[in-house]
Simulated scan of single mutants.
Amino acid sequence: MPNTSPTLPRLIALPKAEVHVHLEGTFEPALLEQWAIEARQPMPRPREQLLQFSGLADFLDFLDWACGLAHTPQRLAALARAFCERLQRDGTGYADLIVNPTHWSAWHGRLRQLLDALDAGFREAEQDGLPKVGLCVSLLRTQTAAQAVELVDLLAAWRHPRVVALSVDGNEATAGRTGPRFAEAFRRAGRAGLRRTVHAGESSGADGVRDAVELLGADRIDHGVRAMEDPAVVALLVERGIALGVCPSSNLALGVYPSLDAHPLERLRQAGVRLSLNTDDPSLLGASLPGEYALCADHFGWDDTTVRALAQTSIDASFADADTRAALSARLAAW
């Protein structure tokens, strides 16, 4: 049967949102080298090997180092602007961008200033016609219940217009079960009108996905692919209509699955789970959103109808305002 998958130029033109991408994963190696030289800080390894990670733990350590270099409002605003430019190049109309304050050592104790600096960069970009961005402020799995509640109470008090959601990320395998620890913080976030998105089912199994749904009230799950290991959890996702923000290239690069053949993306889709494609950490993994669509469409033999359905889910599952979702959906219908 001939391959009828859409071409990369058509996938760039595909109206879509991205809902699982980390600001910490958008640093370019040349920029990091420049900042390290200016700060007289040693690089963890030579620039040509900078993005070669031995696993998830090494990857997370690298994020801490990279974020530590972004110590001025101007650097944060520049990162925000560069992210919007990336969205424009990829044909992405909106993004929910995850930022984890624990990684940004220069901004510890100054979260409001960090958010304001990023917001300044995003506002300038949007005024120039670049895509809109909402921020998902993330807990780290190793934080305490009290630290989680403190963060949520701050976000609830500020009601920062750029912040759309509470998130939690980090290495599930090393942190252990964290659903019970963060349940109260996520309850408070929901009461404060924040959406809730949860990393689960990456380095943990299907049990982490169940906790995200039942204990944390997740509106959306980042990764979630290991739900496939438990048919009851797959059924729960289908029943609740909870979308997964899947990042195929990230899963392969970080060793969650050895190949696309082993990846459960297509089996989850055929089981009726709502899915979107995402890059996770695009610069650090050499990924682009049209590239993720092209990779999967080619491998799984998706046609325009399937691709359009995934793009629609990305829009519907985003935390964009209703007008932005409606405009993107109208453009998608005409694609």
Results as ranks from 00 to 15, higher is better:
residue 2 P to K: 14
residue 5 S to I: 03
residue 7 T to C: 13
residue 7 T to D: 15
residue 8 L to P: 07
residue 12 I to R: 08
residue 15 P to L: 00
residue 18 E to A: 04
residue 20 H to E: 00
residue 23 L to P: 04
residue 25 G to C: 03
residue 27 F to D: 05
residue 28 E to V: 15
residue 33 E to T: 15
residue 34 Q to H: 15
residue 35 W to V: 02
residue 35 W to A: 09
residue 35 W to D: 00
residue 40 R to W: 09
residue 50 L to S: 12
residue 51 L to A: 08
residue 51 L to V: 09
residue 53 F to H: 02
residue 54 S to T: 15
residue 56 L to N: 05
residue 63 L to T: 04
residue 65 W to Q: 06
residue 66 A to F: 08
residue 68 G to S: 04
residue 69 L to A: 04
residue 76 L to N: 10
residue 80 A to F: 14
residue 82 A to M: 05
residue 85 E to F: 01
residue 87 L to W: 10
residue 92 T to N: 00
residue 93 G to Q: 00
residue 94 Y to W: 12
residue 95 A to T: 03
residue 96 D to E: 15
residue 98 I to D: 07
residue 109 G to E: 04
residue 111 L to S: 06
residue 113 Q to V: 09
residue 114 L to C: 09
residue 117 A to Q: 07
residue 120 A to F: 12
residue 123 R to C: 11
residue 124 E to A: 13
residue 126 E to P: 12
residue 134 G to A: 09
residue 134 G to R: 09
residue 139 L to Y: 09
residue 142 T to F: 14
residue 145 A to K: 13
residue 146 A to D: 11
residue 146 A to H: 14
residue 149 V to Y: 07
residue 150 E to H: 14
residue 152 V to H: 13
residue 153 D to W: 07
residue 154 L to P: 03
residue 154 L to G: 05
residue 158 W to E: 00
residue 158 W to Y: 01
residue 162 R to T: 14
residue 163 V to P: 06
residue 165 A to Y: 06
residue 166 L to E: 03
residue 173 A to T: 12
residue 173 A to S: 14
residue 173 A to M: 13
residue 173 A to W: 12
residue 174 T to L: 13
residue 176 G to S: 05
residue 176 G to Q: 09
residue 185 A to T: 04
residue 186 F to R: 06
residue 188 R to Q: 12
residue 190 G to I: 08
residue 191 R to C: 10
residue 195 R to C: 09
residue 199 H to D: 06
residue 203 S to E: 13
residue 203 S to T: 15
residue 207 D to Y: 14
residue 209 V to I: 03
residue 210 R to Y: 13
residue 211 D to I: 11
residue 213 V to D: 06
residue 218 A to R: 06
residue 219 D to Q: 07
residue 220 R to F: 05
residue 220 R to L: 07
residue 221 I to M: 07
residue 222 D to P: 03
residue 223 H to L: 08
residue 223 H to S: 10
residue 228 M to Q: 15
residue 229 E to T: 05
residue 231 P to H: 04
residue 232 A to R: 15
residue 233 V to W: 08
residue 234 V to N: 01
residue 236 L to H: 14
residue 237 L to Q: 12
residue 241 G to R: 10
residue 244 L to R: 06
residue 245 G to I: 04
residue 246 V to W: 11
residue 247 C to F: 11
residue 256 V to S: 15
residue 257 Y to C: 05
residue 258 P to Q: 12
residue 260 L to P: 11
residue 265 L to R: 12
residue 267 R to F: 00
residue 267 R to W: 00
residue 271 A to V: 00
residue 274 R to K: 13
residue 275 L to F: 02
residue 277 L to F: 02
residue 277 L to H: 03
residue 281 D to Q: 05
residue 287 A to H: 13
residue 287 A to Q: 13
residue 288 S to I: 01
residue 290 P to K: 12
residue 293 Y to T: 00
residue 294 A to Q: 14
residue 299 H to A: 05
residue 299 H to R: 15
residue 299 H to E: 06
residue 300 F to V: 02
residue 301 G to Y: 08
residue 302 W to V: 02
residue 302 W to T: 01
residue 307 V to D: 03
residue 307 V to L: 05
residue 307 V to R: 08
residue 308 R to A: 13
residue 308 R to F: 05
residue 309 A to K: 02
residue 311 A to C: 08
residue 312 Q to R: 15
residue 312 Q to T: 04
residue 315 I to G: 01
residue 317 A to R: 11
residue 318 S to P: 01
residue 325 R to Q: 12
residue 325 R to Y: 04
residue 329 S to D: 10
residue 331 R to F: 11
residue 332 L to I: 02
residue 332 L to Y: 05
residue 334 A to T: 11
